[in-house]
């Protein structure tokens, strides 16, 4: 069970959002929507242990995330969470393969057959030796998705995974995320203001930021 309890966040004394609450059961999906600037990306950072909330609690299977020492939060994120960032956060000087390898080494797991299958599924098997800087936006997005699933995460977070893509590529990415979540038996938390996403993925829960108060 993944619980977000009374989470609030202030910037310079100004409330960005407050009292965010939800429970997410295993293998269920949550869509978080809301207009631009409402704090969706900040909320994602809070949910995956990158940004401490001003108040509130994030619990993964009874583990209070922000009660863990800083080092343990990093390790927890690496081993249990997969994150697709809005700007991908790939290492541009590394190749496609190296970006996946570094993600695997972060969690001290050995490279498995899955690694190659994953590259194949995201359509980057023939581009594994190409540097990320030379990939198209769509390819970077697919690589970011592949990297999020490389450690078989229990919870997956995606921040605006389709907003910069055309309909065709948005469809590919949405399907990929859904399929990989099912394969990993992971819960999916997707944050977007892209209205197309609801027609591409069926979510068990929807949270509209701005309406929560």
């Amino acid at each position: 069970m993944f619980i977000c309890e009374d989470v609030s966040f202030d910037i310079d004394g100004q409330k960005l959002f407050s009292n965010i609450n939800f429970n997410l059961k295993p293998q269920k999906d949550l869509l978080i929507t809301g207009p631009s600037g409402i704090g969706k990306t900040t909320l994602l950072s809070i949910l995956c242990g990158i940004q401490k909330p001003t108040t509130g609690k994030i619990t993964y299977n009874s583990i209070d995330l922000y009660n863990l020492p800083e080092n343990k939060i990093d390790e927890f994120r690496g081993k249990n969470l997969g994150v697709v960032f809005q700007n991908f956060n790939l290492i541009n000087t590394f190749t496609v393969k190296q970006n996946l390898e570094i993600a695997i080494s972060a969690i001290d797991r050995k490279k498995s057959i899955l690694f190659f299958k994953l590259l194949d599924r995201v359509g980057l098997a023939n581009k594994s030796h190409i540097k990320v800087a030379n990939l198209s936006i769509g390819e970077k997005q697919r690589l970011a998705v592949a990297r999020a699933f490389v450690g078989d995460p229990k919870w997956v977070f995606c921040d605006e995974p389709t907003s910069s893509l055309d309909d065709k590529n948005a469809n590919i990415i949405a399907n990929l995320i859904k399929e990989e979540s099912l394969r990993c038996k992971a819960s999916l938390v997707l944050i977007t203001h892209d209205s197309r996403i609801q027609s591409l993925i069926k979510f068990s829960q929807i949270l509209k930021l701005g309406d929560e108060l």
């Binding site: 990093d74 690496g78 790939l90 000087t93 972060a106 450690g151």
Partner: peptide
């Protein structure tokens, strides 16, 4: 790059 590594699970 170092910040990215942190997001991937590399501890401080």
């Amino acid at each position: 790059d170092l910040a990215v590594l942190r997001t991937l699970g590399f501890s401080r």
